[in-house]
Design a protein around this nucleic acid. Structure first.
Lengths: 335, 335
DNA sequence: TGATAGACTGAAAGTGCTTTCAGGCAACCC
DNA sequence: GGGTTGCCTGAAAGCACTTTCAGTCTATCA
């Protein structure tokens, strides 16, 4: 099939056919300018070597088969993966290539946002759980790259939004209804601070409802721990070791709720009898752990993002769509 | 937003920002190598001029596309995701684009395998848990697309292999040592049958050891259920409802082990006292569930695949590397 | 027969970008 | 205070092609 190990270049073809690269180039671009004898000889060489002009391959990849990009925080957190799954599922039958860009620092994100719209030749972009600034937003718009954000909204871009405040309210209402009065909150701190953190919103909704019911949420019952199992567990242990430990904990994410469960288990605190635990996300794992949680339809939100994106790619209507995905409380056995 | 009618080039940007084209190029490709003051100035110029790097020129100068593809079964199964995570992690610092192709039927896979190597827009390919035939293998080789397989090996391609037989042996040995004599196996049936299924290998290793110890593994204690929670649970329930139920179950994957745990819980069977459960994979979730399991370093195997791929992309040595990843038994609380 | 238009062709000069290499500069180390 | 290290930076040399331009050759015409 081919004689050389390396991909042949136009030079190889030229040498093989005994002509100059000019001629080879012309055959590809202006075949009528070269006489048919030469043409045949060169074409034969092209076939023999399996030559594929690189630029063309690139161009073909760029415009023909659609490519849509996804920028996501490096997928440590299962919630990102579940959304990604929704995206992949929706994209797969559409014959789109899915290009993943993982981000582990704000810097990294900046770089993608400043170069991708220009260089990447993407047909569309989905950004999961990362805040984009005004400058980036207008760059995306100026360059006409259809974009959908998930979770962190921006006024000028399409968004799939989560009503975190409402989620916090739901959790509080639920726990209150179950008779809890001494309730703690456990969230994470990891994400960038220059933007409104979903966890803060969940906390504020949570706090609102408690306040409306005349219940205090003292500092001691609010913990923020980095998004790691061990540190979350430590925070949970601290809460449970208080002189007056809470009877319920609202964890800002299921990932953390699971760590709370673990800590409770270690300390022989029975769930839900002695401690109610409620999470947020409804990860796959939540079901295994019988975790009561606020579901946010992670897969669905990915799918929805794709739909919005596809719509915009076709019509390129200028006004951004903002869609709230509904939250629902999923009652299982931990609260 | 832009001043000239002509498309600006890297030279224009350089002049506008008062730096060399080298620096501009570096900003796009290796931003960490230029200090932030310069970075800001150049980015500002890029925005001011509306500069768009030409992808084609870029690919030309780089002699590569900077894209590596991953073909994976549609990621329902957490084990694929975890490997993918390893891949993404290893690729991210290397400045490669990660293109995901999800596959949900053999047909689909065939299509990718026959077109991907030809178009030449991929620099490398990783195939997760999918069997590739001889014809496809030689196409990949002929077209010089470096490829690494994970899990399903092929003699002529690089592979990251899992010693499933050994894994089965380990599980059996462990349970035997714990004193179990009536042991069941629960596996899944979903994957393509025209190739050796890892689950069968795990079963055969498992069976070997039992036989070596003179223990029978009757038909009734071997169940294969489709890879779904409900059906696995059903199978587990059946096992536990036998007149003489097993005292231990080896589940071919953690995903299924978790379902077994669930079923046991529903039937008020205490684990590990009345029933020992051991899984295979060591998913993230396994730790939460305190599941004893055979760990196969999923993240690591992804990372390893990338390393092998990168090595081959550089040296393009013709002889395929086959690497076994070590298995280890992770003793937790279910067995 | 000699002039000449026209058809082909290749050397070499771009093209827009990346990368190597070496120099400049500042901080650090006895 | 000289030597070492390490970070930034730009000049210049590629890269895989395309295009220009100056030929060479042949067929044609008076």
């Amino acid at each position: 099939m081919d004689k050389k190990k390396k991909k042949p270049t136009i030079y190889d073809v030229a040498k093989h056919a005994g002509v100059s690269i000019t001629t080879v180039s012309r055959i590809l671009n202006a075949p009528n300018k070269v006489n048919s004898g030469t043409w045949e000889r060169v074409i034969a060489s092209i076939d023999a070597l399996g030559y594929v002009p690189k630029a063309e391959a690139r161009a073909r990849a760029m415009q023909k088969n659609g490519r849509i990009g996804v920028i996501t925080p490096f997928f440590t957190a299962p919630s990102f993966v579940q959304r990604l799954r929704g995206i992949a599922g929706a994209l797969s039958p559409m014959n789109f290539e899915l290009v993943i860009y993982t981000v582990d620092s704000t810097n990294h994100l900046q770089r993608y946002l400043s170069t991708l719209p220009l260089t990447g030749n993407l047909d569309g972009l989905i950004i999961i759980s990362l805040p984009v600034g005004d400058l980036d937003a207008s760059r995306l718009i100026d360059h006409g790259l259809p974009t959908v954000l998930i979770e962190y909204p921006h006024p000028n871009l399409n968004c799939v939004e989560i009503d975190d405040v409402q989620g916090g309210r739901m959790a509080a209402t639920y726990l209150l209804k179950k008779g809890h009065r001494r309730i703690a909150f456990l969230g994470d701190t990891d994400l960038p601070e220059y933007s409104i953190h979903p966890v803060s919103l969940r906390l504020s909704g949570f706090r609102q409802v408690l306040k409306e019911s005349g219940i205090d949420l003292p500092h001691t019952l609010v913990r923020l721990a980095p998004y790691s199992q061990e540190q979350t567990r430590q925070a949970a242990r601290e809460l449970l070791s208080l002189a007056e430990p809470p009877t319920a904990i609202f964890a800002a994410t299921d990932f953390q709720a699971l760590s709370v469960l673990k800590a409770a288990h270690q300390l022989n605190v029975r769930v839900p009898e002695q401690l109610a635990v409620i999470g947020f996300d409804d990860l796959d794992m939540a079901e295994y752990a019988d975790l009561t949680t606020i579901g946010q339809h992670l897969d669905e939100s990915g799918k929805l993002a794709v739909e919005i994106l596809l719509t915009q790619m076709e019509s390129s209507s200028p006004l951004p769509r903002h869609v709230q995905i509904p939250l629902n409380i999923i009652e299982r056995k931990t609260a």
